[in-house]
Amino acid sequence: MVLVPHLIALGLYALAAALALAPFAGLRPAPRALGLGVPLLGLAAHVIGVARLTSFLGVAPTLSMLALFLVALQAASEGLFRASAVGVFTGPLATGLLGLALLIGLAPEAPPASGRGAWSILHITVSVFGLAMLALAFIAAALYLLQFRELKAKRFGPVFRLFPPLERLDQLNHLSLVLGFPTVTLGVLLGFGVRYAGGASVDAAQVVWGMLTWVVLGWAVGVRVVRHWAGRRAAFASIASFAAVLLVYVALKLAAPGTQRFL
């Protein structure tokens, strides 16, 4: 019974995305309780679905987990930062990711090898969570740049009214980047644990490009923390680093296609 909770979650995520986008179509914004409650209900259903997965290996379970973490971070952003506009991005993204996971199929594609199951689960969970935080940093940066442009151009439309203040978006970007980078680093280290514990094969290209991406991410965090970049420059750095992650992922997938591994 993996499918039913996932389908319920998909429906609720789609509804949450519609609620987040409705004000941009000229409709009244949904009450805060509804805007927060619908994705949280979807999240609850999704957690039940993910808990019933027999294996986390493969693209589909990873996409499902990524969608789950994105929605969880969206709810946290709304609760802590009153950044409901994050849902404008995370809503459709989580819906799309979960829909794609269901299309690919959530059935286990490779049985968990004995001795490395726990490492694998930890590695995948931590890495995907780190990736979700980097995605949140990217979303906050994109929202920042949109709001910045509207404020500079003196356009007082839906973006001006519905997006959070610039400073708050900058803080959200900062926090998710600063927490996301160590999380991704921990995920990488756990990946080494998986390799040495169970002897999982990792291509040299994966290691080289993975390290390069890690360096780019480290640069984006470094300019924020060490050189105190803020605002637009920091937003561009954050977007560039996340774009590097996506580009490397797509490049590696094209070079070595297959659905057995997420990366």
Partner: peptide, 8 residues
Amino acid sequence: AVAARIFT
């Protein structure tokens, strides 16, 4: 309102 869209 404008200032509140800039500062947290």
